[in-house]
Design a protein around this nucleic acid. Structure first.
Lengths: 204, 204
DNA sequence: GGCCGCCGATGACATTTGTCACCGCCGACC
DNA sequence: GGTCGGCGGTGACAAATGTCATCGGCGGCC
């Protein structure tokens, strides 16, 4: 605790990242040792600067925050990871916790809160935004099997059954069965509504 | 020009807004006179503080940035309006210019750029991010008729034809005709892909 | 007046999609 | 060994959707 907390900031929005860096610099026990604008860059900066805490935006080009978090967990097990998200769907929270993320918060928190949470996480604590946690709990687990999720994901851009079958290397009948099953489980009228519902719950 | 530029900041993400306010406060010719976290609040703050420049986030609860911009134009014609957007689709740019917005930029700009652009806008100039402008030009105008757009919008959540017809008070056949026509114009295989394409172009 | 495009509708038709039953093959679990 | 669930598939049928031609009404434009 005598040392300053070494922080890595990763966010593709320069404006936010710069502003955040400036704000955190005002805290005299925090130091922003590196910034990154993309997932791969975040990994590279982390390897080079070995921060104590990595603050990652969920949406980034290249690798998203969760993928970076998963990588960091293996490459730098001592580095605590926090995810900051703009308008986060709750499903990500569960996945984040599974890859060892110790802080998960929306961008609606204040800067002083952020600084406090960084200290908490650095000290080995965890922090999850209460509202996001509540949503995640009420959303629950996905009722879909892995394969159903795969196929539904391929359906997400409005493709026809034929295209989905092609991309998944499945027969059209099988694709229709999976989609029908998924739509049934989600209470949707068709696969497109099912995609929307799954997205809203963060299951996609 | 002898006075400091009075700025209103509106963004629903506290973290960003606070950080931005702190950064802009470092510029000695700028003053953040008000902050807002939602569209209606932005209007109220604008009326109360009469800023020279309003910096609005595109996505906000209540009223989005464009709606606020349109209102401000009538209520405070002297107030210049800038829109800042996270991952902006180009279609908004055109609409923004139509409601008198004088600055349109992504959050990937740097803070010093932002300050400069605020000064430019305050002085009566305009600024549009080159990349967004290029996308908007390449995207062009929507080929859809107003009614086609309406119906496509109702189809956006995956509803069935029957539901759309009901909500639009049209016959199912008419709905199918509009959707078929829209899909044809957009080069889509079905209405769901058409929705996606229209969204990507900001036509929805 | 004539032309054209948008709006709303109808009817017919082909295609796509959803639904269901049923099959075999695994692998896990009891 | 038996049971169960996920995976992949087939076939058949009904329902939803896409496509096309055609109609009348309206308003703008030349």
């Amino acid at each position: 605790m005598t040392d300053r907390v070494r922080v890595l900031l990763a966010d593709d929005e320069h404006l936010i990242r710069g502003a955040l860096a400036a704000l955190l610099a005002l805290e005299d026990d925090l130091t922003v040792v590196a910034e990154a604008a993309s997932g791969p860059e975040a990994l590279a900066m982390a390897a080079a600067h070995r921060p104590d805490v990595a603050v990652l935006d969920l949406q980034m080009p290249g690798l998203d925050g969760l993928e970076v978090a998963a990588e960091l967990r293996h490459r730098l097990p001592d580095c605590r990871v926090m995810i900051v998200t703009g308008h986060g769907r709750p499903g990500y929270l569960k996945r984040a916790l599974e890859v060892g993320v110790r802080g998960f918060l929306p961008k609606t928190v204040s800067a002083s809160d952020l600084a406090g949470i960084i200290r908490t996480v650095r000290a080995g604590g965890r922090y999850v935004d209460p509202e996001l946690a509540a949503e995640a709990i009420s959303a629950g687990d996905s009722p879909l099997t892995p394969r159903e999720t795969d196929v539904l994901e391929l359906a997400a851009d409005g493709s026809s059954i034929a295209e989905i079958a092609d991309r998944a290397s499945l027969s059209q009948g099988t694709v229709r069965n999976y989609l029908s099953s998924a739509a049934g489980k989600l209470g949707a009228e068709n696969r497109h509504a099912a995609v929307r519902i799954a997205r809203e719950h963060g299951w996609l």
